[in-house]
Amino acid sequence: MNLRVLKRNIPFAATAVVCVLLYVFGAVQFYDENFFSLRVFINFFYDNAFLGIAAIGMTFVILSGGIDLSVGGVVGLVSVLLAILMENHGAPPVIAIPLVLLLGAGLGTVMGVFVHYFALPAFLVTLAGMFFARGMALVLQYESVPITKHVDSINSTLSLPLGSGLQLPSSALIYLGAFVLALWLAHFTRFGRNVYAVGGNEQSATLMGLPVARTRVGVYTLSGFCAALAGVTYSLYTSSGNPNAGMGLELDAIAAAVIGGTLLSGGVGYLAGTFVGVLIFGIIQTTIIFQGTLSSWWTKIVVGGLLLLFILLQKGIQAKKLRPKN
């Protein structure tokens, strides 16, 4: 029994091991530079909050057997919109932020409808969504603009002091909050379980009488919402509205989910895994920055390599499962 549980969790276990190894490597290698410190640890979450939030939505989409390539574009669009609303039109954050979140969710809903009701391939619809969002962002605002109003006050109100001069900054706080909510959604609501069911076997889910349409559209809506929240977080983090924000974020988000043990075929995976996947991402990034001589492009290549490694691992496990037991 215990062995079986262990087997089922090999991908997740592998992720955890890789994460610890990378961290220990960084901690030993850059001991003098204080790699092993709470400040650096907090920064893993602070610097990658928007990635983490987008990855949460992506995990739900992948669990349901789909994919969402639009998240990066949505981050750009939301970032620009937020800047325009707050800077140019003087909208207070309590209006501007819910408005852009609603917009992101709405975009997701539209894509979900296309995917589900018109049976268009998810990657195509969301690729078009990515172009639409990125294009609109560039149309609205060709260059990055600073956001001067409200951002500082939001950042200072939302941060959580941890003592000894350290604090959990707003974006990290939003990320952790979103993560806890997502855990609840995935494991303690019917919606979450239906996502697993739809991704596990859509035909069965239909015949079981589960609300497949609502679940599928809901998943893309959720992902759109998460992408928008990631866009808000990005703007808070950089105090700017940038139409090019989140370029290539979709792959990072997919990578985080897959490295975290979510099967691309859908139906299997954990949000906790994604959380660790994002952490791995942060550790690699920080390590490369600490290293100093390596180009930041190495992050992309290393992540691509890790992604490949974990996909092959998944394939290996699946192939083993397919072999008949004796």
């Binding site: 009701y117 049976a119 078009a128 172009f131 294009g135 609109m136 149309v139 060709y142």
Partner: peptide, 25 residues
């Protein structure tokens, strides 16, 4: 028209084309 619009137009065209080809639609 600003060049950025081409991205948006293409996105709309691809969805339109796919919808036209979609039996369900």
């Amino acid at each position: 028209v600003p060049v950025q619009w081409t991205l948006v137009v293409k996105a709309l065209v691809i969805i339109a084309v796919c919808l036209l080809q979609s039996e369900t639609f």
